[in-house]
Design a protein around this nucleic acid. Structure first.
Lengths: 199, 199
DNA sequence: CGATTCCTTGAGCAACCTCAAAAGCGGTGG
DNA sequence: CCACCGCTTTTGAGGTTGCTCAAGGAATCG
């Protein structure tokens, strides 16, 4: 039983090690060739080329999500991927093909769930969308590293000025606490505490 | 928030045969038990329960998409599904498990592509969103059966009054042509010609 | 230091929402 | 057949959210 189609395994195997990325770094380009990954840590932004030659936000990939699996079918990436925060990627598929069916099914379910999350980030009041995104990005310890205002704007379908106003107001309301992390680019690593807020 | 009419459910869980559904009909409920389907024809709306006990639009499933595969993992549906147009569903997985890996991988790629489409329907100018949805729903012959104004509003994150105004204006601009179909409820089967329009 | 990039803040405006009323359409019962 | 009911759609008037345009501040890097 052959699970996956005609991918040149020899070259793939060469590069089969995990990748660590900084915030803002490009991962791969739509149309390009490469392998598939699973997101271990961090948040990845996916963009799709539009009719006008531009590129528009398409989706998010968070820890657990599969990235670029379409190359295994079509031989090229559908989306352009870039790291929104510090990221760690692991080659995919990872292990024994014995459980590949289960794993794939789970990945499909996760993908649908994630899609619903992203859709939710584009509806409702502006503040709620931003808070929704922050929730999605917050780790177990209540810490979150925010992407740039422009990235947040693209994801929530708002303008970066609006994002700036909203985040400032959340800080002033002590919902978000600015908290600088050392050793990282300051403008990109605007790190914060996030007090969940009722709801 | 959606209300579902009292559809006869007695036949729903009987057997692994294809299902035909009318526009507006409920397919399954979030949390309920059942099987997975592939959409053969038509458009299915997926809703997710929200914090406030209501239910909000989550995604669309169109011909080729997998529906409710998460029951195979969790034993219950994550979303609530209902038919937006006349639909035909086939049991899934369909055939020999030999090609299950390929098929699953393809389904995953399709799901991610579809998610990007839906996200795109929630960004940009109101008219463009509505036109984008109409494009997504238009068949090869340039015909489209529109869902209710309220459904379109939920999908595009607009109000139904806004949808009404937009569709009326598209008709007056001869982009959409009202064209009644026989043998179907008129309010739901508002059918139209769709002249693609540059872009 | 200058160049670049990102963030903040303000003032005015437009797109879209809200609320309200009425009309169309199909079904039901007298 | 007509009157009525429930539901969807249409249309209007006015209000609000979030956008646009503009200017300036802060941090990074060569």
């Amino acid at each position: 039983m052959r699970l996956f189609s005609t991918v040149d395994r020899s070259t793939v195997l060469k590069a089969r090690h995990s990748r660590a990325l900084e915030a803002g770094q490009a991962i791969y380009q739509a149309g390009g060739d490469g392998m598939a990954w699973r997101v271990r840590h961090g948040v990845v932004r996916l963009d799709t080329p539009t009719a006008k030659g531009e590129t528009a936000f398409a989706s998010l990939a968070i820890a657990g999500d599969i990235l670029g699996c379409e190359t295994m079918l079509f031989g090229c990436y559908t989306f352009t991927a870039s790291a929104l925060t510090h990221c760690e990627l692991a080659p995919w598929p990872e292990g024994e093909p014995a459980t590949a069916g289960e794993s794939l099914l789970e990945s499909l379910a996760i993908a649908q769930r994630r899609a619903a999350d992203v859709v939710a980030l584009r509806g409702g009041q502006a503040v709620d969308r931003v808070i929704g995104l922050i929730r999605l990005l917050t780790d177990g310890a209540g810490k979150v590293v925010l992407p740039t205002r422009q990235d947040i704007a693209d994801i929530t379908n708002l303008r970066f000025e609006t994002i700036s106003r909203i985040i400032k107001s959340l800080e002033r309301a002590h919902v978000l606490a600015p908290l600088k992390i050392e050793g990282v680019h300051a403008t990109r690593s605007f790190s914060v505490d996030f007090a969940p807020l009722a709801g």
